[in-house]
Design a binder for these strands. Sequence first.
DNA 1: AATGAGGATTAAC
DNA 2: GTTAATCCTCATT
Length: 519
Amino acid sequence: MQKMEYEKMLYMTSAGEMPHSCSSQFKLAAEQFQGQGQTDTYAAYAYADNFDLSLLPEDAGIPTTVYQYNAPQIKIEAAWECASDIQELPTVTAAYASSGQQLIPPPPPAYPHSAYPSPQSSPQQSEFASFAYGKYNGSYDCLSSPCPSLDASSIKQELHILPPSPPESNCETPSPRSACSDSSSIKAEPLDADVESFIDLNTLLQQQQQQQQQQQLLDIKPNHQVLRECLEDTTFQRKHNLKPLALESFIGGLAEVRGDFEPVISLALEHAKREADAICAKLQISQDPNAWTAAQVHAWLRSTLAQFKLPPAANLELQFSEDGAALVLLSEEEFTRRLPESGSTLHAQLEIWKMAYADQLGNQMDTAPLWSTATTAAGYQAPNVEHEESEDDEDMEDMTAAPAVLTATPTATTTSTKRTGGARNGGSSHIHLWQFLKELLAAPQVNGTAIRWIDRSKGIFKIEDSVRVAKLWGRRKNRPAMNYDKLSRSIRQYYKKGIMKKTERSQRLVYQFCQPYHQ
DNA sequence: AATGAGGATTAAC
DNA sequence: GTTAATCCTCATT
């Protein structure tokens, strides 16, 4: 792993090699936080679109830790890139226990799962994508940094020192292109006492603009003199007690990467959820898009169009006759076909809603029992410590521990109490298996790498971890004895119902949604 | 051994 | 009646 691969990673996103799964809506959520902790000059370099690789020091001297400071943002994308390769989470949180860093005792986790971008959306899906790419572009160098000395707790500390956001100045629209002018119409009702900890997008946007200005200034400097100077400057490393990292440890570092970025993603998802809460309250609609009536779909569409300052659709009701359950099954292409100007944005936003709701369900399913076993008075107990009574939960516990770090912050202690923790199934036990599978496919923060799209346009997916998918299904249906044998039997029942089928060339664990169920 | 296919029965709604 | 869970046998990979 030398410079070549280093460069490859560095340009992975800009070269269009960003995995299809790295969705724009996730970036959308992620960029809500990009202002945080980004006051350091180095961050601007990591952002630079035209980051000159020739400026990088030779292999041995790559000051990888310089870019690690940008870790929270970078890892959001980076980790999804590698998420499919990370199955075994124990190493993730084991890092917390072994890092030697001072760890803040975690409160109950707000989010048991890491939040990964939906694999459904294409990079060109929305205008946010280019923005996000521009921002995070060139940041894959962080992938090469296992960050042994910068764990989530330090990230949290960075976030913690941010100036507090004015509680009433919410600009809740997640897109940077959506100004606050419309936000009054969707302003969050004080649904609970946690509103005051709301993240203020105004602040974030201002910080972001400052960074853009910084970047522009840098761009016009000949030979990237400032960049050179900063790359050679090690004060940053000393300041943060960072050590140069061996690129060879990249693979092993991915696990830690995942652990590190989860808090930020949880925060992003948290924000998305709060925004959704506010809109739900205003429109009097369910948080679950599947529950929307056609009229509520229209209300949501109009609200979202206004929110993003998109041209209002004259015949929205005619174009979208679906109810919520059908709406969530529409592809981005279908959205775009109906509304060329705004379809991708609407689809992306809907994906965020779905993700936020799925995350909430995940919390309802898993938070309470996991918290009690995974993070007790022992503090950061290494998750790979056996919990003999709950083998089924070990994968979830692993996902829970990392986000727990962040929940110590003022902005993230919020929903852990407001959720109906411990209420298993959350009233979603009527879900059909095919819907659940689509939900998993759309919410990899829940399923990890257990199931993924092979060819989304054709509705072909693969169950990568049959045991895990079966467990998740069993959890959802409150059927502890569920296994893949039973699950697959149900899937096979779908054959004659025309819901699913095996692919033309039958492959193990590969199934395909039939057309009406996958557009 | 894991997975796939499908029959049969049962339970929940 | 529908759907899924469960159990089963047998075939395939």
